[in-house]
Amino acid sequence: MALTMYDASVTVFMHNLKQLSHLLDKGAAHAEATGIDPATLIQAKLAEDMRPLSFQIQSASDASKLAVVRLSGVAAPSFADTESTFDELRARLANTRAYLETVPREAFQGSEERVVTMKAGAVDLEFTGQSYLLHFALPNFFFHVTTAYDILRHNGVPIGKRDFLGRA
């Protein structure tokens, strides 16, 4: 069976959002075990000019939702970006996964050639669906997932590659 746009998007997002929730579980457990204020981890950054962990979680959620909307045409819920606790961030990921579960495979038929246009600042970008997924949506999603992992790891949370990758 050939790889479909659904398989290359929704299944990848679902798996990695689950792993991101697992990383948050580890972060919350670490905060509790060490007496660190959970808000310290949630607002942690790798560099002063970067966004905090909460933003990385919100952005991974948004990146997956927007990619699926652009490829399938199935509307996604809007989230307010107000999460400030581990529980709220995990709920955001669960709600994102719940949306992704509602999008049928059939909605992706022909999406590899569908024109995807978007704004990046003052610039209009145009892609085919396949180019958008492979060269923008997935790299953007993984940027935020990886940055969230790095923030947690940098702040002493005992996580490793297996926590990031999970099981297929």
Rank of each mutant, 00 (worst) to 15 (best):
M1G: 12
M1T: 15
M1K: 14
Y6C: 08
D7Q: 14
A8Y: 01
A8I: 04
A8V: 13
S9I: 06
S9D: 01
V10L: 11
V10Y: 10
V12D: 00
F13Y: 15
H15M: 10
Q19F: 05
L20G: 00
S21E: 08
S21M: 02
H22G: 12
H22L: 14
L23S: 01
L24M: 09
D25T: 09
G27D: 06
A28S: 14
A28E: 15
A29P: 02
A31C: 10
E32R: 15
I36N: 03
I36C: 03
D37H: 07
P38W: 02
T40G: 10
T40E: 10
L41H: 01
I42L: 02
A44T: 04
A44N: 07
K45C: 10
L46A: 08
D49A: 11
S54V: 00
F55W: 12
I57T: 07
Q58F: 07
Q58S: 12
S59N: 10
K65C: 05
L66P: 01
L71Q: 00
L71C: 04
L71I: 06
G73M: 11
V74T: 08
A75T: 03
A76E: 03
S78D: 10
E83A: 10
S84D: 15
S84R: 14
S84H: 14
T85R: 04
D87R: 11
E88L: 15
R92V: 00
L93E: 07
T96Y: 14
E101Q: 13
P104T: 12
E106L: 04
E106N: 08
G110M: 01
E112G: 13
E112S: 13
E112W: 00
E113N: 09
V116Y: 00
V116E: 01
M118Q: 12
K119S: 14
A120Y: 13
G121I: 09
E126K: 15
F127H: 10
F127E: 06
G129E: 04
Q130L: 05
Y132W: 03
L133P: 00
L134F: 09
F136R: 14
A137S: 04
P139C: 08
N140L: 06
N140C: 04
F141L: 09
F142V: 05
F143C: 06
F143H: 09
V145R: 01
T146M: 08
A148Q: 06
I151E: 09
I151Q: 06
I151H: 00
L152Q: 09
R153N: 11
R153G: 04
R153F: 00
V157D: 01
P158S: 11
I159N: 01
G160L: 09
K161Q: 04
R162Y: 11
R167D: 10
A168Q: 09
